[in-house]
């Protein structure tokens, strides 16, 4: 039995009321609650008031803005909704795959996309009961001062463990945030920072209101690869999103642009660099998969922050990247 700490709950009906409520000290936003409530039950945060978005209906719509050429997904849409939405499937199929691989069907019925892009970083030494943590004196992300993953480390390396984030960055998505100072938009590739104790640039009083994916008229193949021990419930242990823009609408066509993003390393997802070498090569050329897999393997170094040996996970990044590209080619 895990009890929540004593706290108050506010149920605003509109976004404006929610933003206003968030200005009181000690308040904390809650959407689906599948990440925050376990963390509160584990005493990882101590807000005095939760501002729930459960009653804010305006955040759940999914629309295609033809003028701006954007897919606009309300942050309150559940992952089940995102996975099954025909518009998302048409314009961002790799996001459907990622949303459908998060945790379990029960969690996806409840968790929101806005919550998933703000999922707190995770670590085997953090996401435990306070009783468990007390035996090792906590760490820099909880009650202590040391890092159990990187001995002597001063920077928290808890892992960005969202399935949707790498995909959204690979698709060039941005976030709409609303706060007391108004509305702003931030590219998701700039939203995350390499500090596990606070890994996004969202201000305390801000609410993520929408995830915006640009529409493309040129041919594209995008996919997501998640490896974990079980077929359900688990967080990813390796996580790779791939997006290839092609010169023609067939997998044999030359690649016009490539983006690969890897999660579950440190607090910040890694955008793999130096992929220019595959531009101009055919996606179905086996050398393409080999080159991309090699770049991922060289640049991504998993840590012992989540279960399973880090060297094994690094080796697997190469295998899963190559297989993800082979799967895109096989799908045609």
């Amino acid at each position: 039995m895990l009890r929540l700490p004593r706290l108050d709950v506010l149920m605003p009906a509109t976004l404006d009321e929610a933003v206003l409520a968030l200005q009181s000290p000690g308040s904390r936003l809650i959407a689906g609650g599948t990440d925050l409530l376990p963390n509160l039950k584990h005493r990882l945060e101590s807000p005095t008031m939760l501002v729930s978005l459960a009653g804010v209906r305006e955040l759940s719509t999914i629309t295609v803005d033809d003028d701006a050429q954007e897919l606009v997904i309300g942050a309150g849409a559940t992952l089940t909704t995102v996975e099954q939405c025909p518009q998302v499937r048409a314009h961002a199929p790799s996001l459907c795959s990622a949303a459908g691989l998060v945790a379990s069907p029960l969690i996806r019925n409840q968790a929101t996309l806005g919550g998933n892009v703000n999922l707190d970083t995770r670590c085997r030494y953090v996401n435990q009961t306070d009783f468990w943590r007390s035996a090792i004196g906590g760490c820099i992300k909880s009650e202590g001062t040391v890092c159990h993953v990187v001995p002597g480390g001063k920077n928290c390396v808890a892992a960005m463990s969202s399935d949707c984030v790498p995909v959204l960055i690979s698709l060039g998505a941005s976030l709409q945030l609303v706060g007391p100072n108004g509305r702003r938009r931030v590219a998701m590739k700039d939203y995350y920072v390499a500090d596990g104790t606070r890994h996004t640039t969202r201000e305390d009083g801000e609410v993520t209101t929408a995830v915006i994916v640009p529409l493309v008229s040129t041919p594209r193949r995008a996919g997501y690869s998640k490896w974990t021990v079980r077929g359900s419930i688990d967080f990813p242990l390796t996580s790779v999103a791939l997006c290839f823009d092609l010169e023609r609408d067939e997998v044999a066509a030359p690649i016009a642009g490539a983006t690969v993003v890897v999660g579950v390393l440190g607090a910040k997802p890694r955008v793999v660099t130096r992929l220019d070498e595959v531009v101009g090569k055919s996606l179905s050329d086996p050398e393409t998969a080999a080159i991309v897999a090699e770049r991922v393997h060289r640049q991504c170094k998993p840590l012992a922050n989540v279960p399973y040996e880090a060297p094994y996970r690094r080796q697997m990044l190469r295998v899963h990247t190559r297989r993800a590209i082979e799967a895109l080619v096989a799908d045609g």
Binding site: G33, P38, L50, S52, A54, T80, P105, L106
Partner: peptide, 23 residues
Amino acid sequence: DKGDCGACTVQIDGLPRLSCLTL
């Protein structure tokens, strides 16, 4: 009591959800 087992599943407006993670 934290969403890993599903024993608390109830339906909210017809959808199965975790009552241990619902305020």
